[in-house]
């Protein structure tokens, strides 16, 4: 069986186990690009997704940043939404029940201005039914407090992780920023502090300006870059984190197609999140899922697990070993 076009007899197993978190397949939607799920229910069956990661939730509702909040860039977009969200109480009263009615596997992305707020959020969510895991956002580049302030320093990243860990028995994902010198260092710190899973990357800090009006294109001046433009950066970060920690990793960044998703699985991510692609094609995540299954059949693989982390980085040409080793 294999590349000559033969197919596996039965449907390939898509289920993945990420530490304590078991998912029916490895295709998730990224926080901030999929609303609270209901925005997409006209377009796809939410129950098919590995999980829906909801728009980041804070203790109190947040209005977000002034407009303009988004601008297009080559093969990507910059955003500075500013974590606009309905707050945890409305999330629990309105959004979560709607997701549960649609049989979605729900991962709640949480954010706060202080360790205490993160902990209080985890505590408030602990008794709610129908939450598969928490994803701690310590990596949003668009707000002054919270978010990235915690994610760029291993000590504060660890403290937030620990504060949430003490309040939740749920699988705990920590979402990392690429806007750091050594992402492996942050990854090791949050793993040691109790993270079960690491997801990366959040957006890449960026900027766009208008030469005619001499104004920044975003009211916030700086924004977070997402979309295909950041995929190589994301892939590099996932690769580094996979080698830095022993916990499972979820790859995020510029995934548009199943082949993009496979790149992340190949370098060792156990699952992926589809983000900006949802904004362009609301059906993007299920298209990635369908394409993934097709690929596994084509390759004659019985399960997605067989493919994860199988990147071969050995040097193929013995006489060029020195060149390989010295590359970069």
């Amino acid at each position: 069986m294999g590349k000559d076009g033969t197919h596996a007899r039965s449907a390939p197993e898509l289920r993945v186990q990420l530490g304590p978190l078991s998912l029916k397949n490895p295709v998730l939607t990224a926080s901030g690009t999929f609303g609270y799920g209901q925005e997409f229910s006209d377009f796809l069956d939410l129950a098919r997704l590995g999980a829906v990661v909801v728009k980041g939730i804070s203790l109190e509702p947040r209005p977000g940043n002034p407009p303009p909040r988004v601008t297009e860039t080559p093969a990507g977009m910059l955003n500075a939404i500013g974590l606009e969200n309905v707050g945890v109480e409305r999330f629990l009263a309105e959004k979560l029940p709607s997701l549960r009615r649609r049989n979605a596997t729900v991962i709640v992305n949480i954010l706060g201005n202080s360790e205490q707020e993160y902990a209080a959020l985890a505590e408030r969510l602990e008794d709610a039914e129908g939450i598969a895991a928490l994803e701690v956002n310590i990596s949003c580049p668009n707000v002054k407090e919270g978010g990235i302030a915690f994610g760029t320093d291993p000590k504060t990243a660890a403290r937030v992780t620990e504060a949430v860990r003490q309040k939740t028995h749920r699988p705990l994902i920590v979402k990392l920023s690429p806007n750091v010198t050594d992402i492996g260092l942050i990854a090791r710190a949050v793993e040691a502090a109790g993270a079960d899973i690491i997801s990366c990357i959040n957006t890449v800090s960026g900027m766009a300006v208008d030469v005619f009006s001499r104004r920044p294109k975003l009211a916030n001046v700086l924004g977070g870059l997402s979309g295909p433009a950041i995929k190589p950066v994301a892939l590099r970060c996932v690769y580094q984190v996979v080698h830095a920690v022993s916990c499972p990793v979820i790859g995020i960044g510029g995934i548009q197609t199943a082949l993009d998703a496979l790149e992340f699985l190949l370098v060792g991510a156990s699952a992926v999140q589809v983000g900006t692609a949802n904004l362009v094609r609301p059906t993007a995540a299920v298209e990635v899922l369908d394409g993934l299954e097709r690929f596994l059949r084509h390759q004659g693989l019985a399960s997605v697990q067989e493919y994860i982390g199988t990147l071969d980085t050995t040097c193929r040409l013995p006489q060029a070993e020195e060149a390989c080793a010295g590359d970069g």
Binding site: F34, G35, E39, F40, P66, P67, R69, V70, E84, L279
Partner: peptide
């Protein structure tokens, strides 16, 4: 009108005061 990314209420990019 506004600059818009998704058009379906997901990205919250097209905010007006």
């Amino acid at each position: 009108e506004s600059v818009m990314a998704c058009g379906i209420g997901a990205c919250l990019g097209c905010a007006l005061p």
